[in-house]
């Protein structure tokens, strides 16, 4: 009946209040399938702070510690320390934050935590703006995006922060991107992150937001796949901050326009804008390829 090699037990329950077609819930579902029941989640303010349920409900079948917006990295450090002191080294502590809580307000706490090489997995599920509160731009919002705080012609004219590079630069044992459109790859990365105990592991998960991106809910996975196929969101891993492995070659790439033009948040872009964004994507890809080439084959992830 099921030919899939993927783990099959779900630790996420039905009845949560995620929007229809929410990519972040798909991300959680895959993550928990990979991580299993010996997992504790630390969730700061983000969409998932709501999806996980309000008192007295919970949509997750693992323990969850909700924390203040800026604190996922720190609170997870504390929880890890407590488990260690109790002699529980089996449970995996996972901070689960949105892009706002990671790229912006939580950046400092996370930077501090991974510099200390805290023994946890930090997951940023990235929906590229503050979606829970009505689509305000974050530093993860890509160039060209319209949000409620980058409206009209003031659409975002700066690039998305490259968060994996930022944390790879901390020389943590493992940093990787993952996409909900590539469940095998994503689950493998979560399993790998779980096995790499003893240090900080950072996973940057692409999570489509149909509501905020103004796309039909059924396109959630399709768009995530397009992001990879157009190289707008490359799938790669970095071990010890320097050894890069590309997981999906996206060869030949689709034009980034194919990815952008199907989303309402980019509807205003002109041919010139598309050209500019394509150049950025190409540049980033080349940089990434060069980093991959720097790592000797046998040393790669």
């Amino acid at each position: 009946m099921i030919h899939s090699p993927l783990p099959q037990t779900d630790y996420m329950a039905s009845g949560h209040v995620g929007c229809p077609g929410c990519g972040a819930t798909v991300a959680m579902k895959f993550a928990l399938r990979a991580l299993g029941e010996k997992t504790m989640l630390v969730i700061p303010a983000c969409c998932w702070a709501i999806i996980a349920g309000s008192h007295p409900q919970t949509s997750l079948k693992v323990p969850v510690l909700h924390t203040a917006f800026a604190t996922a990295g720190a609170a997870a450090s504390g929880l890890r320390a407590a488990l260690d002191m109790r002699g529980d080294t089996e449970t995996t502590v996972v901070a689960w934050a949105g892009d706002g809580g990671t790229f912006d307000i939580g950046f400092q706490a996370l930077s501090g935590a991974v510099e200390r090489n805290e023994d946890f997995i930090y997951v940023c599920y990235d929906n590229e703006a503050y979606m829970n509160t009505g689509v305000q731009r974050s530093s993860s919002t890509p160039f060209g995006t319209r949000t409620t705080t980058t409206p009209g012609t003031n659409w975002k004219h700066t690039r998305k922060k490259n968060i994996v590079e930022a944390f790879a630069a901390h020389r943590i044992p493992y940093a990787a991107t993952a996409s909900i459109a590539y469940p095998e790859d994503m689950i493998r990365k979560f399993q790998r992150a779980r096995e790499l105990k003893g240090g900080s592991r950072f996973l940057h998960v692409y999570a489509t937001c149909p509501t905020g991106w103004r796309v039909p809910s059924d396109q959630c996975i399709k768009i995530a796949r397009l992001a990879v196929k157009t190289r707008a969101f490359p799938l790669y891993e970095v071990t010890d901050g320097v050894r890069y492995t590309l997981n999906h070659d996206a060869e030949p790439p689709l034009p980034v326009r194919d990815y952008l033009s199907v989303q309402g948040r980019f509807k205003h872009l002109t041919d010139d804008d598309y050209g500019e964004i394509q150049a950025m994507v190409d540049e980033d890809w080349e940089l990434l390829k060069r980093k991959v080439a720097l790592a000797p084959e046998e040393a790669r992830a």
Binding site: S14, G15, V17, H55, P56, T58, S59
Partner: peptide
Amino acid sequence: SNVSTEINKT
């Protein structure tokens, strides 16, 4: 909280 969200018939 430990009441499953399954009580919400979404």
